[in-house]
């Protein structure tokens, strides 16, 4: 409650400031605006609980990167993936995304999120109201598939508000979907993660899914158990402070 009131007060002050500035043109009445001095406010913490549910049959999901930001996007359909996103999508390494220049505050998941499992990741920021929240995580039994949400606007969320939705699956476009054992880092294959080479279309797109050796891709290390369809993740965001 205190924060709401404080916000209103700030707004009032902001309006007064604008009034003052526009009054400056007359060259006089700056002193006419009486501002009651405020007590030094306690730092404002904006906190969000992000609950993830892995909806897939057999795709463990790598530790998610949950980030707050005021500009930018983690990816754009039709454009090349950043190296940070490539690393996340090929190996599950979220450190680059969490350290991205646009990120104001970020939090990684505690560990691998198994099929059917849930996890709540708390993310917060002090004194800056964040405008956007993004999430990215790899489907580890794939070449370069990831899921998440991209630059979702938070500006309508008040304290206690909650929003829930499901996410689709994207292809970083940085590694061909050969499904070969040597190229898939997840437990179904145990192969390589990140490789700087980009041998696919080098554009982010929607993922076409796992073919698997059970459905006609003989070179695949994957079976029907790793196949998935959209959506792959359920996300619930609650503003807790």
């Amino acid at each position: 409650m205190f924060f709401t009131q404080y916000k209103k007060l700030s707004l009032l002050l902001a309006s007064l400031t604008i009034f003052t500035l526009s009054g400056c043109n007359n060259g006089s009445d700056k002193e006419e605006v009486v501002m009651t001095p405020l007590p030094t406010p306690a730092p404002i913490v904006y906190s969000y609980d992000v609950t993830l549910v892995n909806l897939t049959q057999g795709q463990p999901i790598s530790p998610a990167a949950v980030v707050l930001h005021n500009e930018g996007k983690l990816w754009t359909i039709g454009e090349s993936a950043s190296v940070s996103l490539e690393k996340l999508a090929e190996s599950g390494d979220n450190s680059g995304v969490l350290a991205d220049a646009m990120v104001l505050s970020g939090q990684g998941g505690a560990g691998i999120l198994l099929p059917g499992a849930s996890e709540t990741i708390a993310v917060s920021i002090t004194d800056t109201e964040p405008m956007m929240l993004s999430i990215a995580a790899m489907l580890v039994n794939t070449n370069d598939a990831f899921t998440g949400v991209n630059a979702m606007l938070l500006n309508n969320m008040s304290m206690g508000d909650s929003v829930s939705f499901t996410t689709n699956t994207y292809d970083a476009g940085t590694e061909k979907n050969s499904e070969m054992m040597a190229t898939i880092p997840g437990p179904a294959a145990g192969g390589e993660g990140f490789n700087a080479e980009r041998d696919d279309i080098d554009k982010v797109a929607m993922h076409a899914g796992i073919v698997s050796k059970d459905d006609g891709l003989m070179q695949s290390a994957l079976t029907q158990a790793e196949r998935f369809d959209n959506p792959t993740l359920m996300v619930t965001i609650t503003r807790t402070n």
């Binding site: 689709n168 076409a208 891709l217 369809d229």
Partner: peptide, 24 residues
Amino acid sequence: LGDDDLTGGKSDLSNTVHRWLNPV
């Protein structure tokens, strides 16, 4: 469906290139 045989099989499409999941 596609297949992994460019010169035979049932399909002329590639199972790693020409599949999709909704939405498109």
